[in-house]
Design a binder for these strands. Structure first.
Lengths: 340, 340
DNA sequence: GTGAAAGCGCTAACAC
DNA sequence: GTGTTAGCGCTTTCAC
């Protein structure tokens, strides 16, 4: 497939490549109105499209940012992405998108792909808080601007933005406790996701604060998806003696809550009368399923603004000191429809 | 930010650029084992990454495909994308992703961006079945391989894959009718989405077949989102005399169903006793909300296979005749939990 | 087995 | 205002 180049246009008009190039960028300082018009005209007629790669090669800058998301099952990261895109557009940057599908191998090859395409910077929500530590470390040493968001890599010298998972969890847990719940089943996230630790700590701390003793059988480490939530809930119900039944459920993700809720419904356990459900949420997913599920949303707009700010700072000057932003828990609560 | 180039490696090793280049592609025909080892070694040490744009410029082919999705609110298109990615990877292609956010202006600029990056081909699910007709026509004339999927552009000379919306709709409608429903409220999709017409036709045809007279007040044209579904449902309930209440709801999208269901619940209308809900679905969204919603899923795997096949055919030879694939209605039904 | 040189499409000094 | 030239990083003849 033959693409039209400035050379072709130059030949047709009997002028030089440089003039065409100048005209195409409407450099009215150095090219006559007449020439500009002619060039633009024939370019259009011939179906000319500037070869971006040649431009980038020449400029040694692509004016594009790569963003890497762990998943696109929920719309959380996509919404974030959409906000980021608007912000970057204002600054003259484009956005390239990749999904890792919760696989750190994929994540790594996405990073490498973007690197090969010489993106000016990278926005990453990582699948795994450890697996790629060395990889990223050497990357950052090479001077490539990276900002991690939402899911970060612990201990890595880099800029990052995340929401205050500890406080958010604390808040939701207290919500359940004030609702009279005492045996709160917690579906934790997998260890390798960076937010797990903070939330787990908050779970323990809330119990302590309210003098509720910790029961290890009430904490189940599982995956982030609907199926994981369903499986965990089923396992719990099957193994738990009636007198040790939980009276509330706290989920790591809203997808888990969705799965767990289905199991409860199937077994005829009423919500929220018998059991109250709360979950951390980035999406409308849980609330969408039922207003009886209380959710906390992470402050996305602020997160995207900060991510872009930090990234552009690094791009402007790679020696900008790294900054680890933890967003205050600006929480938007959807209260339970009914209380005890 | 200075990137390492083959020139740098050549200088360090005191050999020529060409040898480095050959060594990097492990051309053991023309380079000694020894040299290859040395080059690979120092390349690694120096943190060399091949500049993909220089390669592409030289090769005049990028080995990448651009995919453009209308939305990422639901996970339908992302799942499709994931399948496509696997298939393309096997053929040595990479995938670049863009989201148009249901805006045909965005869609167009995404196409242009990919074109500027000289992707080898384009996979598009379009936001609008008319708005970009001329645009695409000239694009295709210029010889750029494009395959439309799911949402196509009517009348355009091009390859495309879609599912059999007519049959799927017919099936769901009959499901409702066999369930004893007669006044089926239909939340249609907006006119500019290509699937709307087929589904509307099926709505009418099913009624005819079962000798149910058509009532225009039972068809509401609205948007695809949750809010649209909620708004349409509210409008209907507010304006409809009690004796003209519908006994079933058929939605264009699962998101609409979600919105409508919330309104129904808020008004204390029980599902599925009073009203039965069915919807076209690409995602788990609707089923996730309630097993009482019957859904039809579009056959994604087959669609991705066909899309890739058609695209690669065009890439291999742009003069391959276009093919319009309509996938047989391989439907996966989730039956209502209860029947009348 | 290796090097020199040309060129992919573009921009930006530098001349005139 | 326009043309000439060099070069971005790479691959690929064509010599040797």
């Amino acid at each position: 497939m033959k693409h039209i180049t400035i050379k072709d246009i130059a030949k047709v008009l009997g002028i030089s490549k440089s003039t065409v190039s100048r005209a195409l960028s409407s450099d009215s300082q150095n090219v006559s109105k007449e020439t500009i018009r002619k060039v633009l005209d024939t370019a259009d007629k011939m179906g000319y499209r500037k070869n971006e790669m040649a431009v980038n090669l020449r400029h040694r800058s692509t004016k594009t940012i790569g963003i890497i998301l762990p998943e696109a099952e929920t719309s959380f990261y996509m919404k974030f992405t959409s906000m980021v895109q608007h912000l970057l557009q204002l600054k003259g940057y484009r956005l390239l998108l990749a999904i890792s599908d919760e696989d750190f191998i994929n994540e790594r090859s996405n990073v490498e792909l973007f690197d090969k395409y010489r993106v000016d910077g990278l926005l990453i929500s990582t699948c795994h808080n450890k697996a790629n530590y060395d990889f990223y470390e050497s990357f950052i040493k090479r001077g490539i601007p990276i900002v991690f968001f939402d899911r970060i890599i612990q201990g890595l010298e880099c800029s990052s933005v995340k929401s205050d998972d500890y406080k958010a969890t604390f808040f939701l847990m207290e919500h359940l406790i004030y609702d009279g719940r005492k045996r709160i089943l917690y579906l934790a996230g997998p260890d390798h996701i960076s937010t797990t630790a903070d939330r787990m700590r908050a779970y323990h701390d809330t119990l302590s604060k309210h003098h509720i003793s910790y029961d290890p059988s009430l904490v189940i480490v599982t995956g982030t998806n609907e199926e994981d939530g369903a499986a965990a809930m089923t396992a719990f119900l099957d193994s738990c003696p009636p007198q040790e039944m939980c009276d509330a459920l706290f989920c790591f993700t809203d997808l888990q809550a969705v799965g767990a809720k289905k199991v409860l419904e199937k077994r005829g356990i009423s919500i929220p009368e018998t059991i109250s459900i709360a979950c951390m949420s980035g999406t409308r997913m849980a609330a969408l399923v039922s207003p009886a599920i209380t959710t906390v949303e992470r402050p996305m707009l602020k997160m995207s603004e900060e991510a872009v700010r930090l990234l552009l700072a690094k791009i402007e000057d790679i020696n900008t000191p790294s900054e680890k932003v933890v967003l205050p828990a600006e929480m938007f609560i959807r209260a339970s429809t009914r209380r005890k």
